[in-house]
Each structure stands twice: as C-alpha cells, then as structure tokens.
Nucleic acid binder design. Structure first.
Lengths: 153, 153
DNA sequence: TAAAATTAAATTGCACTTGATTTAATATGA
DNA sequence: TCATATTAAATCAAGTGCAATTTAATTTTA
C-alpha cells in the first residue's frame, strides 16, 4: 500500500470535508451577514454573552491573529463591543450587544437547513462527532507536549 | 437542546480537527519545503506524473484561484513544469520533473511520523474515513444540484 | 522594590480559499 | 461560416489562519 497515495490518507478527506461543509453554510450565513468564522464566534457569545479574547480563542482553537481583525469587523457591524478589562488591562473583553442578541433569532433556522444538506443517521453523526473530538483531544495533547519541549530547550 | 450551541455542532469539530491536523503536518512538511496544500498537490503528481489543472482541481476539490498561484510556486521550485496542451490551448498540463520525483523519497517518511501523532485504532480510522467520504459524496451532489438550479434560472 | 519574566493582544508577513470577473480558446448552430 | 455559447485558466478582492514579532500590562524574584 502506497503511503503517499491520496486515497490512502485520512487527513485529506478531513481537510476536504471541512472546506465543503463551510461552503454549504455560506449561502445560509450570507442571509444573516456572517462568515462561518464569524458565526461560530457569535455562537460563543450567544452562549456566554461576555467572553475574553483568550477564552474565545481556546473555545474556537483560534489565536489573536485571526480573532482581532474578525472581532473588529463584528464590532463595526454593531454585534458586539470590545473593551479592556478594568482588573487587568491586558485582557480584552468582548460583550454581546442587543443587536447581536437579536441576530440569534435570525440564525436559529440555520442548523435545521444545514441538516437537510447532510444525510447521516443519528448514529453515524454521533460516531463522527465522537471520533472528531477524540482527534481534537489528541491534538491538544500534542501541542502541549511540543510547547513544553520547546520551553525546556 | 440548543441548536446554536457550539458543542451541539457536528461541523465545528470537523472544522477544528481539519485545521489541527494540518498544523501537525506543518513541521514535517517544512523539512521537505512544502505546505500542506502543496503536499497533496505533489501527491497527485507522484501518482499520475502528468495532470491537467482541471483534473487536479477535481481530485483536490480546489479551483484555479487556489491552484494557479500554488502551481507557479512549485514550478519556480523546479518540482513541476506547466505547459498549455497542444490539442486544446485552454488546458494547462502540469508535469512532474525529476526533482519533483526525487522529493517523493524524502516525503516517504512523513505519513508514518504523522501516524505517531494520532492514536486511532484501525477500525476507528476506517470508520472515520468512511464517514468523511460519505459526507464528501453528499456535498458533491449538493453542489451539482445547486449548479443545475442556477443554470436553469 | 526594581529588573526580569510572563502574559495578552495586536501587528506583520505569508499562504491559502473562495466568489466573481476577465481573457483566450474551442465548440455550436442558425 | 460567423456570431454565440461554452469551457479553462487567470486575475482580483475579501476573509481567514498561523508563525513570529512587538507592545503594553502584570507578576515574579533577586
């Protein structure tokens, strides 16, 4: 078995399916004026109302290099506010605005419409979900040990 | 169950795991001077030696907007050549060079090293592989029907 | 406590991705 | 056959992602 054959890779369908799913979301998200990354950012805010950039990055596996310009855009759209924490000025706190909260109602129809695009049984979806989070967990471990090794050197 | 909660999404771990895996590849690929997208492009060339941009895009689910600049970079590195087809000048044919072929030997160690980073049983990997290709297949169908509907309108 | 280390965002540079448009070549049909 | 339609790449604009560096604030420690 050729280890460099595209069809023998597990990573490639993961990479391709992820882009494909985001592409499926695009027209639905365009109706509410969001990109996919903006959408998952808003999801965190709809859950927590207020969150630091650091925690947001931990939740989404994204760093400030991606989040800073994205949050500035969402602020400009009036969906959130950005302000330094009074306790620790290094922390920037992001807060949902009433407009941002209102957008949630419009977004509520999106998951169901996406669901119609994907035909997996509940069991298949559950299995996939579990395997993906297993992978994510292992990758977090990897990043941490790499980090520690780097600090030691 | 809140449909807009991050942890209730199937798409989010897919998106995050795909980026995470590519990040794991990065240091290994840096040793052979490739990015992940360049790596899977070379994979197609290692299999076929010669391929049109159109077929390459079909194999990788990428369009000329991504591939054109990427192929120019690989050409500049001497790994492939780009030339218009004599039969049909609209087609650009990409061909592996001896240097590109030689790079394959260096890349051969990468899949095993990546495998060490991910701890899934053969059965789990097979299940994940199957589900991801099932998703990819459904998304292809979606894109095609959307395309047809658009052409009709 | 003052210097050194650490932390959190922001910034910068590079490499994608994608949608939309443009350009060039080929195929079609009145 | 010549205008029209189609096809394939290339180009362009906008939005990520990420590594590396910088800046500002806070801790730690000698």
């Amino acid at each position: 078995m050729d280890p460099l054959k595209l069809e023998n890779q597990l990573c490639f369908p993961l990479y391709a399916a992820a882009r494909g799913i985001v592409k499926l979301y695009t027209p639905f998200l365009a109706e509410v004026g969001l990109t996919y990354t903006q959408y998952i950012t808003m999801m965190v805010l709809w859950e927590r109302r207020q969150v630091g950039v650091k925690e947001l990055g931990a939740a989404l596996y994204l760093d400030s290099g991606t989040l800073t310009p994205l949050l500035k855009k969402l602020e400009k759209q009036g969906l959130l506010t950005r302000a330094r924490s009074a306790q620790d000025e290094r922390h920037l706190v992001v807060t949902l605005t009433p407009q941002g909260e209102a957008l949630r109602e419009k977004a509520l129809q999106i998951p169901a419409r996406m669901g119609e695009c994907v035909d997996l049984s509940a069991e298949e979806a559950g299995t996939l979900y579990g395997l993906l989070y297993k992978l994510l967990g292992q990758m977090e471990d990897r990043q941490e040990t790499a980090k520690l090794e780097q600090d030691r050197g």
